[in-house]
Nucleic acid binder design. Structure first.
Lengths: 335, 335
DNA sequence: TTGTAGGCGTTATCAA
DNA sequence: TTGATAACGCCTACAA
């Protein structure tokens, strides 16, 4: 008689391991994952051997389900190719790895609607924490919906952490943007620059506004009032920095220094200056914020304010402690 | 009489939604996730309204568990701050997003042991596919274990894709490194360079070896035999490129061109040349592979071979089709 | 079109 | 220390 053997799923389950090891399901579970290790050594060995023999792999979704949650961290970033966010992500993953956690990641591409969407997706995964790294805009249309999701997540026992977004009512890792701006202004003023120009980025971006505010404060203190026409709005990316700078050069602005509200923009501005044949730093200095990795290779050197991005990504708890630090300039002459 | 209200988990379940909507569990399930939409419009509306009212969020682990798997993609990369991998990741996430999938990510930090570990972690998540982006080394000690895991994963119905690692017996997205090397050699020879030096990276790295082989071929064809002493081994990172170049300069090598096996190293070499006051590209040209984003801002410009990284990350199926393309040089004089 | 009921793999409770 | 067994939240035949 030919019996049809049911096409058992090729992946063995804990049940298979238990049977193979000659113990109960409970014992197998405890041996492989149990926290309170109250399993006799010899049966532990049996179970492990059986698991090995069968090529057993824990079914994490099932486990998370049974436990009512996982230990994963869901990280929401704007754009993973932006060194700023890559550094944060690297920090988070390094930390998670050493904690035996998994990092799930979603990108928003700087679109608030997609951000909301990613948070919904994140919530569905039932992670231990949702970490938001991005930047809020001023008229924040999706804010209510976002807070609704996040509050519900916290109500369910989840943890929410906002990196660099102090306007969110959750645990946060914050950067003192205004303070960094003041420091940077003081530093460049100390280097002798007198006619600064500020590439301010988008007016709606809080991070950009705070940095500009800090710069204005700092220059003011140094006796260099920053009039409104010296602060130019524009986009927040590399190409935006290049375009804005190019426009300014074409318009014939006078300045001995350009400060962009982030390094990426500063690098763009550098390209525009190079193209226009304006000597840096002789005829014009260039400065930015963040001290991202590529800034190190910007030639000529950039003056930049360092932000502890990797640390931010790897910070576990997060009292609203402002962190900032400045960094000296590279090898360029006046910096 | 005071009754203790059981502390119900704050997150409502599908069961709660069904009750709230006055329908059965099955109907609620079908209305919210069902594929074959055979739910009457009015009850569909009732369910959606109830879900909205309760702030219901699907329990993805439970769903994945019940369905016996998820649609997620697990991406394993060496280092997310490396623009090379960031580009691949961005491509994968973009694609996944438009497919309504989630990307789980793990980093190996170029450590084979950690890679094996990440693959195990990946398998536990029961994703639809595991995508490996990295580079294999030659004496590949973990290979057997790795293949064991991946084979088991495929046996369980999963899909494995290797990006840029043709030695793995799975679906792959491959780059024609040797071809790129030939192209690059031909291009720079055409620009008039005659005394090339190659920063070859680690001898164990297959990707590096193939590129070097292509370069040697190409130079040979151009009548510029590449003797062994013109090919210098070293690390694969930016700092390695800088260090190797610095050593070479100190040793007084003669050359009119340096070709690094990747842009990151080339950028490092550029830093060493700048430091040593060697004019680029007048006294020495610099070339690399990958055409990563920061290369665009390398000053002076780099000659580089473009690789379709984002496309690679977003490629769904993957016949072993080799893809390559070259790119012209930037604004520098001789390139 | 809707509801009932069994099952998915693991954990956790409670006896033995 | 171990073993039954009942959840856990959702999906899906199967029946109604």
């Amino acid at each position: 008689m030919l019996r049809i053997v049911p096409a058992r799923p090729a992946t063995p389950t804990l049940y298979d391991v238990a049977r193979e090891a000659g113990v109960s399901l409970a014992t197998a579970s405890r041996a492989l994952n149990g926290s309170a290790r109250r399993v006799r050594e010899d049966s532990r060995v049996k179970v492990l051997a059986a698991a090995e023999r069968l090529g057993y792999s824990t079914n994490a979704p099932a486990q998370a389900f049974a436990r009512g949650g996982s230990t994963s961290i869901f990280l929401v970033v704007s754009d993973i190719t932006d060194p700023f966010f890559a550094a944060i992500a690297a920090g988070a993953m390094r930390r998670a790895g050493s904690d035996g956690r998994l990092v799930l990641m979603g990108v928003t591409e700087r679109d608030p609607a997609r951000e909301l969407d990613m948070v919904r997706t994140a919530r569905r995964q039932r992670p231990a924490a949702i970490v938001l790294a991005g930047s809020r805009r001023h008229p924040d249309r999706t804010r209510a919906a976002l807070l609704g999701e996040l509050d519900a997540f916290e109500a369910g026992g989840g943890r929410v952490v906002a990196i660099g977004q102090d306007s969110l009512p959750y645990a946060r890792v914050s950067f003192d943007h205004a303070g960094s701006g003041r420091d940077l202004a003081a530093a460049v003023a100390g280097l002798g620059y007198r006619r600064p120009l500020v590439l301010a980025g988008p007016a709606e971006l809080q991070i950009a506004r705070e940095r500009v505010r800090g710069l204005a404060d700092g220059f003011e203190t140094a006796g260099i009032p920053l009039s409104g026409d010296r602060v130019v709005s524009g986009g927040f990316g590399r190409d935006d920095g290049e375009a804005t700078m190019r426009d300014l050069l074409r318009a014939g602005v006078e300045a001995d220094l350009v400060v962009a509200v982030n390094d990426v923009m500063a690098i763009g501005a550098l390209a525009a200056l190079r193209e226009a044949g304006v000597g840096v730093p002789d005829r014009m200095g260039v400065a930015g914020f963040d001290d991202i990795a590529p800034s190190r290779d910007a030639a000529p050197a950039l003056t930049t304010v360092r932000l502890p991005l990797e640390e931010a990504g790897s910070t576990r708890s997060s009292s609203p402690s402002a962190t900032r630090s400045t960094r000296g300039c590279g090898s360029a002459r006046r910096c």
